[in-house]
């Protein structure tokens, strides 16, 4: 049963990925401007242009180009970046850790802050604390990450300059990374100065990304908690002498977390989508920042590679959330 579900999901996933590939390929190829002309020095002959065009396969028909490109992708060959002259997969995978670390830090902040607000609101339900929390989360929710980022740039860049507002790590930091997971590698190698520098650079972009999601979690989780708190099993726990906070944490939270989880999965993909502009804002050397440069420079193979990677990431997250929902829910697990 579970295996069948997974197989069906994988199949639709493949269809979706194929669709993404078609859309991005079409978009990129109908873009005006000749990318080849841009990469050659002034004074290049028509022959040079023709040679290079043939090298990148731009002289063939669109469907033909697509087949060649897709064939390459399926074999792990994403082509070569026009501006950076390196294989796309190397470039993209080199930047992915930065974006992943940032997104995961944002998710952790959102889960923690949102969870705390939800529990507080449920604990003081019906009172002015709940009304205040509702108003706060409602306002925070409607402001997108871009604006939070700008606000933090202003606050922590100008008025109270305690945190860095650009880059990923202090450039004076001397450390030879073997991977691009700065935080993880820093921890593993015991270089906590590196970890600290990286985290302090990540904090503001991560907060910008986390705030709207935190507000959403606060609202939905609180709603689910309140529904659980009128169930008989919570009443029984109260009779047995558990305090309201204990009832929320021990009895209600796990039930309320399940429906919240599905939302968090979808919202996490939105959060990762938000890294594109937030990374730009904080000059953070991640995938999104590279993507915008690629678009501005008309670096077609690189754009394709990045978009495809994002799409695969989003689909993978949704898949994982669906599966973990099944695994965490005892009623479905044995069903």
């Amino acid at each position: 049963m579970l295996i069948r579900t997974i197989l069906v999901r994988l199949l639709t996933t493949a269809v979706t990925l194929f669709g993404v590939a078609v859309v991005v390929f079409t978009l990129v190829r109908v873009a005006p401007g000749n990318p080849i002309a841009m990469m050659l020095p002034p004074g290049a002959t028509d022959e040079d242009i023709a040679n290079l065009t043939a090298l990148y396969g731009f002289d063939k028909s669109l469907p033909h180009q697509f087949v060649i490109w897709l064939g390459g992708v399926l074999q792990g060959d994403f082509g070569t970046s026009i501006t950076l002259r390196q294989p796309v997969d190397e470039l993209v995978l080199g930047r992915l850790p930065a974006t992943l670390e940032l997104s995961i830090m944002a998710l952790v902040i959102a889960l923690f802050a949102g969870g705390l607000m939800a529990v507080l609101g449920a604990r003081h339900r019906g009172g002015s604390t709940e009304v205040g929390l509702d108003l706060t989360s409602g306002a925070v929710l409607s402001i997108p990450d871009f604006l939070w980022g700008l606000l933090f740039v202003l606050i922590f860049g100008v008025f109270w300059p305690v945190l860095s507002i650009s880059g990923r790590i202090d450039p004076r930091m001397e450390f030879d990374f073997t991977t691009n997971f700065y935080v993880i590698e820093g921890i593993l190698r015991g270089r906590f100065d590196v970890v600290g520098s990286t985290l302090s650079h990540m904090l503001m972009p991560a907060m910008s990304l986390a705030l709207p999601l935190a507000a959403m979690i606060a609202q939905l989780l609180k709603q689910n908690l309140k529904e659980a708190l009128v169930q008989d099993y919570t009443t029984l726990a109260r009779v047995r002498g558990f305090s309201e906070t204990a009832v929320i944490l021990r009895e209600a939270l796990r039930n309320a977390a399940l429906p919240t989880l599905t939302l968090v999965g979808v919202q996490f993909t939105f959060l990762i989508g938000g890294t594109v502009i937030v990374e730009r804002l904080f000059a953070y050397e991640g995938l999104g920042n590279m993507a915008i440069d690629a678009v501005i420079n008309r670096d077609l193979p690189l754009i394709q590679g990045i978009v495809l990677l994002f799409a695969a990431l989003f689909i993978a997250i949704n898949l994982i959330v669906d599966l973990s929902y099944t695994l965490l829910n005892p009623r479905l697990r044995h069903g």
Binding site: Q231, D232, Y233, T235, L236, V239, E251, L258, N329, P330
Partner: peptide
């Protein structure tokens, strides 16, 4: 102690 009315809802489904 309480013996509740509805045994279907009085036990926490996820524990």
């Amino acid at each position: 102690a309480l013996i509740p009315q509805d045994p279907l809802t009085a036990l926490n489904p996820v524990r």
